[in-house]
Simulated assay, not measured.
Amino acid sequence: MKVTPEHNERIANLKFFSVYPHYLSKVEKKGRTKEELHQVITWLTGYDEAALAQHLADQVTFKTFFEQATVNPNAQLIKGVICGYRIEEIDNTLTRQVRYLDKLVDELAKGRKMEKILRS
């Protein structure tokens, strides 16, 4: 499936704080914790708890969220299909980073071991 410019724009303008509760709900329903979710987000973005909380409070868009992040160099090891898109084929950097996060949350919810999720 090809990512369109409209899709990229929609992703960029989506508010991180509005998606975060869905991430949390998804992992908690499967027996994982908020702390594990934060560990995954921290690994991908380089944010600490305070920075993550501030981004949630400021209601930033995904564009701002990832512009200010220091994306983990091992993020490129995240591969597969998420939401019908093959991650490694997404050419828009921001959309690919958002899909990285989606994939990590999916793996966490599916019970994958943290060492594998964090590509260590």
Rank of each mutant, 00 (worst) to 15 (best):
E6V: 13
K29E: 15
E115P: 12
E88K: 05
Y23T: 10
K2C: 14
L104A: 06
N8V: 14
A12S: 08
V105P: 01
E9M: 13
A57K: 03
K15H: 04
V71Y: 02
L108D: 00
A12D: 09
A50C: 11
K103G: 02
K34L: 10
D58M: 13
L52Y: 04
Q59S: 14
R86Y: 11
R32H: 03
A75T: 12
L14P: 03
L77F: 12
K34M: 12
K110H: 12
T95M: 01
K29H: 04
F65E: 02
Q68T: 13
P21N: 04
V105G: 01
S25I: 14
L37W: 02
S18E: 14
Y20L: 05
I87T: 04
Y23P: 03
I117H: 00
R119C: 10
A12M: 09
A50N: 11
L108C: 03
L56M: 12
H55T: 12
Q59I: 15
V27Y: 00
L44E: 01
K63L: 14
A12E: 08
H38Y: 14
I90F: 01
R96C: 03
E35C: 13
M1H: 11
C83R: 09
E107R: 03
E67A: 06
E9I: 13
A51W: 04
W43T: 07
Y47E: 02
V27L: 04
K30L: 08
E35N: 09
F66R: 00
A51P: 07
L44S: 01
L118T: 11
I78C: 03
A75Y: 02
E28F: 06
Q39S: 12
K110W: 07
Y23S: 03
D91S: 13
E35V: 12
G46W: 02
T61W: 02
T93L: 07
W43E: 06
L104P: 01
D91G: 08
H22K: 05
K63N: 08
R96A: 03
E88P: 05
L56E: 09
I41H: 00
Y20M: 05
A12F: 05
K34P: 10
G84E: 15
E9W: 08
K116I: 15
E107S: 08
K116A: 14
